[in-house]
């Protein structure tokens, strides 16, 4: 199997996302998320190099600044503030969810091969499988964790997956759309952060498994 540089970066990002599942420490999770996003930014830049599309360089820079840098820092600041260092973990033990994720990573290859090929240049099935795998990892992360901050991380991983998929299938979206999404994301994370503060204040914990008490 011959991989181009962006594909390699994306696959490594997907692998890092799988590894994220293995630890319950929030700082480790955020660090791995940052690495994953840096890899995606790198892939974007490489893609720009291959296609000669200048906009991709700008997007890579934006991703690096916002998603790989600001967002993890902000989240780790929140977790420091709330003195939450470790997730409690839910029904699936952390190591097992990591194994599950790895297996899904491989299965996403099988899935990506089945995607109807748009013969436009730049379509790559390893890239698509990385996207699918990132998406699934994010979902499992959200499923297997209980702290609200982990939910935000899971959501961000899902977003990375969608972005990766778009990047590899359609060469990314126009710059304006991409910037809009990034801005939205930043705002969403900020709002989520504020909400987490609010939850902590009202319930004295940020365990979302206990939210079902709110049911009538």
């Amino acid at each position: 199997m011959n991989l181009s540089a962006p594909e390699l970066c994306l696959l490594m990002a997907a692998l890092v996302a799988c590894l994220t599942l293995g630890s319950l420490h929030l700082s480790v999770n955020l660090g791995l998320f940052a690495i994953e996003t840096v890899l995606i930014a790198l892939a974007t830049a490489f893609m720009g190099g291959i296609t000669g599309d200048r906009e991709l360089y700008v997007i890579a820079l934006l991703i690096f600044c916002f998603k790989a840098f600001t967002v993890p820092l902000f989240l780790s600041w929140i977790s420091d503030k709330l003195m939450a260092q470790r997730d409690i973990g839910s029904f699936l033990p952390a190591p097992l969810s990591m194994h599950l994720c790895l297996i899904l990573f491989v299965l996403s290859f099988a899935l990506a091969k089945e995607i109807p090929v748009s013969h436009a240049a730049g379509h790559s099935w390893p890239g698509a499988s990385a996207g699918i795998s990132l998406l699934l990892s994010g979902l499992i992360l959200m499923l297997a964790r209980r702290l609200a901050i982990s939910q935000v991380v899971g959501f961000l991983v899902i977003e990375n997956g969608i972005y990766t998929f778009a990047l590899t299938q359609t060469r990314g979206m126009p710059l304006m759309v991409e910037m809009g999404i990034l801005l939205d994301l930043l705002v969403a994370v900020m709002v989520a952060g504020l909400l987490i503060f609010k939850i902590q204040k009202n319930f004295e914990h940020i365990d979302i498994a206990q939210l079902k008490d709110l049911r009538d």
Partner: peptide, 8 residues
């Protein structure tokens, strides 16, 4: 040679 699913 075979399907990824079976190999997994």
């Amino acid at each position: 040679k075979g399907a990824i699913l079976e190999k997994t």
